[in-house]
């Protein structure tokens, strides 16, 4: 069965079919499918309004079918610069034109490039399901490797980002073993706001160095009030304690720790740059 609903209620109805899978940009769906038989599919790419990215006084909403290219084109506050930088590093243009932010989140890869930046934006996940709509912070939504807090029959309809603090600016640096189309060895996103030359808001999150991208809250706390010229010098290995890097084909755990620290410094420096 292939369902192509045009409304969210129709999508939820289609999701009642056993074994059904959600298809949006297809950039994770088809690689995972390989040469296996097709499952039943709910294609959410034709749901009206689901590709929209909207800015309002209540915040910024990003529809579940919005692609990375949609995001790059959207006029958004500087706090989104990190997320936009991540968007430009996802695969290449073919992937950015197809893949969605929400799909990247729901796929729940430890190396999902969008998640660290979403954490720095305090983004929440908007879910609709049999029990009605609800919102979950990104940090609570991604539970582990390939695991998200989404009950059967429910659908993520979008992301909601609260209005960023005034002056907040985002940055993102990804480290891979080649240019373009590469799975990150490590990546760091940061959002920084300054007041009178000192940090007044700080968010730092690291990806590919733990099962789920992780905020460095001790570092964020330490950054508060730090003079702008001291920001890049502040991070030390202790701040990376929440990370649990592993050895894999892309790098060793020890390397990831060293690289994450260096990337954190560089990302903060970039975010603090006027």
């Amino acid at each position: 069965m292939y369902f192509a609903p045009t409304t969210v209620p129709d999508a939820l109805a289609a999701l009642q079919n056993p074994g059904v899978r959600v298809l949006a940009g297809g950039t994770d769906f088809y690689p995972a499918l390989g040469d296996a038989p097709l499952p039943a599919i709910v294609d959410i790419s034709r749901i009206k309004g689901l590709s929209r990215i909207e800015v309002s006084p209540q915040g910024i909403s990003i529809g579940a079918a919005a692609t990375w290219s949609d995001l790059v084109r959207a006029p958004l506050p500087p706090a989104f610069d990190g997320l936009k930088a991540a968007a430009r590093e996802i695969g290449a243009i073919q992937i950015q034109n197809a893949g969605t932010l929400v799909g990247n989140l729901c796929n729940a890869s430890p190396a999902a490039d969008g998640v660290p930046a979403l954490l720095t934006l305090d983004a929440r996940v908007a879910i609709e399901g049999p029990t009605g709509p609800r919102e979950v912070p990104v940090a609570d939504f991604v539970k582990g490797v390939r695991t998200v807090a989404l009950e059967p029959g429910a659908l993520v309809v979008g992301l909601i980002v609260p209005p960023p603090p005034e002056g907040a600016k985002g940055a993102f640096i990804k480290l891979g073993a080649r240019r373009h189309m590469v799975i990150s060895i490590a990546m760091v996103a940061a959002a920084i706001a300054l007041r009178d030359g000192r940090v007044s808001h700080a968010r730092v999150a690291v990806g590919s160095c733990s099962a789920v991208a992780t905020r460095l809250t001790a570092l964020e706390d330490a950054l508060m009030g730090t003079p702008v010229d001291q920001i890049a010098k502040l991070p030390v290995a202790d701040h990376l304690a929440p990370l649990t890097p592993i050895d894999d084909v892309r790098g060793t755990a020890a390397y990831r720790e060293a690289a994450a620290l260096e990337l954190t410094r560089r990302t903060l420096e970039e975010a603090a740059r006027a």
Binding site: A4, L23, G26, T27, Q94, N97, A98
Partner: peptide
């Protein structure tokens, strides 16, 4: 068949996409 090589690149409403990552529908 995984979006890694781009050999199947086509233009969809003018935008490059990997045809292996789209459903026919």
């Amino acid at each position: 068949d995984a979006g890694d090589c781009g050999a199947c690149t086509v233009l969809v409403d003018g935008a490059p996409r990997c045809a292996c990552l789209m459903s026919t529908a």
